[in-house]
Amino acid sequence: MYAAEFDYHKASSVAEAIQMLGQYPDAKLLAGGHSLLPMLKMRLANPTALIDIGGISELKGITVNDGTVTIGALTTHQEIAASQDIQNACMVVAEAAEGIGDPQVRNRGTIGGNVVHSDPASDWPTVLTALNARFVIQGPGGITHRATRTVNASDFFKGLFETDLKENEVLTAIEVPRLNSNQLAEYAKMAHPASFYAVVGASVVITVENDRCTAASIAVGGMVPNPIRASSVESALVGQQLNAESVRAAADLVANDLSGSLMGDFYASADYRKAMAAVETRHALMHAIGLAHH
C-alpha cells in the first residue's frame, strides 16, 4: 500500500520543527510513524508534507527527579518498558508500555506520537489520565501566549483523535507524578486478540492509609472517545477498607460515569463494553490491592 504523495522535511530541533509547521501549513509531524503511517497508507490522512522529528535528541529520554518522571515525547514504548528508573518510580507505566502491540511496534512507536493521535483504543491516554500526567507543549509563542505551556491529562485528551495541541505546537515531554509508597497503581485491559488494542481499559491509582482508601483516581477508556474519570467509583472507594466486596461494589458503579457517546463495533458492542468496564475496573483494583495476580 502506498500513501498519497507528500513532501518530506527533516527537522533537527524542536524550534526548527515549529518553524517548519508554520512554513508548511498542511504538514504532519512524523515521529515513529506507528500511528501516522497506517493512516497515510489507508489514505485516512493526506498531508501535503511530513516533518520528520524522529532524529531530534532533545525529545528523547527519561529523567527522574524527586516528584516527577519526565518522559521525552520521542521515547519508545520499549525504552519505557525497559527503564529501571520508570520501574522504580512508577511501575504501572512500565507495565502499560510492555502491553502495547508487539515487540516491533514497541521498538518504533513513541509515547508522544501515541498520545497526540488520541486513539480511544490506545492504552496511554487512559493510564496517563489516571496518573494525572502533565503534557509539556512548545509553540512559536507570541504576544498573547507563551512559547511553552503545560496541560493536565484531563484537558489534553479532548475527543476522538483530538487533543489540546494548537496549530504549530509540538508535544515535547510528558511528566508523570512519581508514586508515593502508600499509592497503588494498576492498569487492566480487555485486549483485542489481534492488535492488543484496548477494547476496554481501566487504570487506577489509589492511596491507602491505615488500611483505608484515602484517595482514588480512576480512568476508563476504549469505549469512549477520550478517557473518562470514573468519579462515582472514586467517591465510593474513599473512606472504605479495600477488600473484594468493597472493590466490587465500587467498580459496578462505573456505568454511572459512562453517559453519552459509547462506542462499539462488530467485535464488541457498546453495551458489552459498558459491562466489561466494570469488570476491568474491578480487575485493576483487585490487582492494585494484591487480591489478584496477572
Binding site: Y8, K10, L30, G33, H34, L37, P38, D52, G54, Q78, D102, P103, Q104, V105, N107, R108, A194, S195
Partner: peptide
C-alpha cells in the same frame, strides 16, 4: 504492521519494514 513477515533489524532492533519509510 500486524503479521511480521517484513521484520528486519534496524540499528540493532527489529522493525516492521512495511511501517517505516525508506527516508526514515
Amino acid at each position: 504492521s500486524q503479521c511480521g513477515a517484513c521484520v528486519v533489524m534496524m540499528n540493532g532492533s527489529t522493525v516492521k519494514s512495511c511501517t517505516c519509510l525508506a527516508v526514515q
